[in-house]
Nucleic acid binder design. Structure first.
Lengths: 89, 89
DNA sequence: TCAAATAACAACTTATAGGTTGTTATTTAT
DNA sequence: ATAAATAACAACCTATAAGTTGTTATTTGA
C-alpha cells in the first residue's frame, strides 16, 4: 500500500499506524533504535522535525520504503533525467 | 517516474537531477526557499542531515511527492490499518 | 578570452534536534 | 482492583542543523 505525504501532519498517524500493525510498543521500537521510549515518543509526536536519517531508520524497522514520485507535469517538455537511477522504464 | 530510496546516498543525485530538469541553479532554488545559495548547497550536499520539513519544501518546489510504500510482507497476517488514509484500495 | 554564473569551500552564530532521567496519567491484561 | 505496560509530559545537556558572509575554483555564454 502507498501513502502519499501531502502535508507533514500526515506522517505522524502513518508512523503510529505502522508501529501498531508491526505489533510494536514505543518502548520496543525505541529499543530497536537504541534510544529511550521518551526519545522515540518525541520523534513520533513531531516527525517533521526529525532528520531524514532518523526517519529513514524508523521506516526501515517498520518495513516502509521511501519513494520520490514525480508529480504530473503540465504540457511542458522536460530535459532528460537519464543520469538518475530509475525504478521502472 | 518513481525513485525508491534504498540508501540515503541516493537522495543527493536525485535532488541535483530534478533541480536541473527544473532548469534551476542552486541560487535560483535557494531564492525560492528564501535562503542563500551557500545554505542550499549545504542542504543539497548532505540531504540526510536535513529535517523532513526542509526536504519537503525542496521537494515541493521541484514537483516531487513523498511516498511511503509498504514493503512486501512475508506470510505474516497483519492487523487492520484502516484508520490510516490510503491512496488506493 | 573574459565576464557572469555556478558550485563549493571556510569560519562563525543561533536555533533546535537528539539524547537523558524523572514523573505521571491512561490503557490493558490478570 | 490492581500491577504492568504504555504514552506523554518536564527539565535539562550536548551535538548539530540552519543560517550568515566572505572567498574561490570551475563552467558557461557572448
Amino acid at each position: 500500500m502507498n501513502y502519499t505525504i501531502n502535508t507533514l501532519e500526515q506522517i505522524r498517524p502513518i508512523l503510529i499506524g505502522f508501529r501498531k500493525t508491526n505489533g510494536l510498543s514505543q518502548k520496543a521500537l525505541a529499543e530497536k533504535l537504541g534510544i529511550s521510549q521518551q526519545s522515540y515518543q518525541a520523534l513520533e509526536s513531531a516527525p517533521q522535525k526529525a532528520t531524514i536519517e532518523r526517519l529513514f531508520k524508523v521506516l526501515s524497522i517498520l518495513g516502509i520504503k521511501l519513494q520520490f514520485v514525480e508529480k504530473n507535469k503540465p504540457l511542458e517538455n522536460n530535459l532528460s533525467n537519464s543520469e538518475l537511477l530509475q525504478d521502472e522504464w
